[in-house]
Amino acid sequence: MRWQSILAIYILFWAFSVFLVLPFGVRTSQEAGAELVPGQAESAPHGFSARRVVIRTTIVATVLFLIFYLNYVFGWVTTEMLDWVR
């Protein structure tokens, strides 16, 4: 596999992983014990840490990509192994 393909696939894994990571660790202002700002929705997050999301996303994407790449190299699961291909 060419390095450009590896990079493109990793970027896709990273982009999908953002949506997996975003809901974890979110606390509302009520849960954090802070007062609501006038006009703020009760379900709005109290604080957002982009750095924390980026770090978590990178870890998740790297693990998922490594599983994908190792499967590509060693052929643990191939299309011939799947029943729906026949």
Rank of each mutant, 00 (worst) to 15 (best):
F65L: 06
A15D: 12
A8I: 10
A15G: 14
I6S: 05
P38E: 10
A41P: 00
V53I: 08
I9E: 11
E35W: 10
G25P: 01
P45R: 15
V21C: 11
W14L: 07
A8Q: 10
Y10I: 04
L66V: 06
I9C: 15
Y69I: 06
L7V: 09
T28E: 06
A15I: 14
W3P: 05
S5A: 15
S43D: 12
H46S: 13
F65K: 02
G75V: 09
E31N: 07
F74N: 01
R86S: 12
T28G: 01
M1R: 09
F19K: 08
L22T: 08
I55G: 04
R56P: 02
A61V: 03
Y72Q: 15
G47M: 14
A34E: 09
A34Y: 11
T58S: 12
Q4A: 12
L36R: 12
G25F: 04
I9Y: 14
A44Q: 10
G75N: 03
M81Q: 13
R27M: 08
G75E: 04
A32R: 15
Q4C: 13
L66R: 03
L70W: 11
I59Q: 00
F68M: 05
R52A: 10
A41V: 13
H46I: 04
Q4D: 09
T62E: 05
F16W: 13
T78H: 14
I59T: 01
A15N: 07
T78D: 07
P23G: 03
A61H: 02
L20G: 12
N71P: 15
T57I: 02
P38Y: 11
S17E: 06
I67M: 09
G47K: 15
F68I: 06
R51A: 08
P45H: 04
A32G: 06
T57D: 04
Y10R: 15
A41G: 12
A41R: 11
I6H: 05
A61F: 00
Y10C: 10
L36V: 01
A41Y: 12
R52G: 14
V85T: 13
G33D: 08
P45C: 04
P38G: 15
Q4N: 15
Q40W: 14
G75S: 05
A50D: 08
I55F: 05
W3S: 09
W14D: 01
Q40E: 12
H46K: 08
I59A: 04
M81L: 11
R2Y: 08
A50C: 13
R56D: 07
S49I: 05
T57C: 00
V60S: 00
S17L: 07
P45W: 00
M81R: 05
E42L: 15
S43K: 13
E35L: 15
E42V: 13
V26H: 12
G75F: 08
A32L: 05
G33N: 09
L12D: 07
F65G: 01
P45A: 08
P38A: 10
F16G: 07
Q30A: 15
Q40D: 14
V77F: 03
L12F: 12
F74T: 02
R52S: 06
F24S: 07
A8P: 12
I11L: 11
S5E: 13
S17Q: 08
F74D: 02
V60C: 03
F19D: 06
